[in-house]
């Protein structure tokens, strides 16, 4: 998938990945690739400004840990981040349902 289409969803996808537990940046990149079956192939470096932005917004916490003999910054969802992750997923599912209906020629019930 092309980068412009992915970029707007990076924050939500990072929150979704971290919903399963703390991870460092490289681990998140690998998990995004795995979950998408290789479909999402964005530049891995875009993850870090997104992580810093989410942390700045209070949705993530982070700390240094030694993982595999190397010092890495490990991120986790804050309480606000957990709520935001649920909210983003709910919003996305509603959006996907609506788009599916439009592409399928169906009309969803209002509300």
């Amino acid at each position: 998938m092309k980068i412009p289409e992915l970029q707007g969803h990076v924050d939500g996808m990072l929150l979704a990945v971290l919903s399963d537990g703390p991870l460092h940046g490289y681990g998140m990149a690998e998990e995004l690739r795995r979950r998408s079956g290789g479909e999402f192939d964005l530049a891995e470096g875009t993850i870090y400004p997104a992580l810093h932005r989410l942390e700045s917004a209070g949705l993530l916490t982070s700390r240094w840990e030694v993982v595999g003999g190397r010092r890495r910054r490990v991120y986790a969802l804050s309480n606000s981040g957990k709520a935001a992750a649920v909210d983003r997923r709910t919003t996305w599912l509603a959006f996907r349902c609506a788009v599916d209906a439009v592409f399928g020629g169906e009309a969803l019930e209002a509300g």
């Binding site: 460092h24 940046g25 490289y26 990149a29 891995e44 470096g45 190397r70 010092r71 890495r72 910054r73």
Partner: peptide
């Protein structure tokens, strides 16, 4: 930032 990026690239 430099430490994070370097760790990622080495991994």
């Amino acid at each position: 930032i430099v430490l994070e990026v370097r760790a990622h690239l080495l991994d």
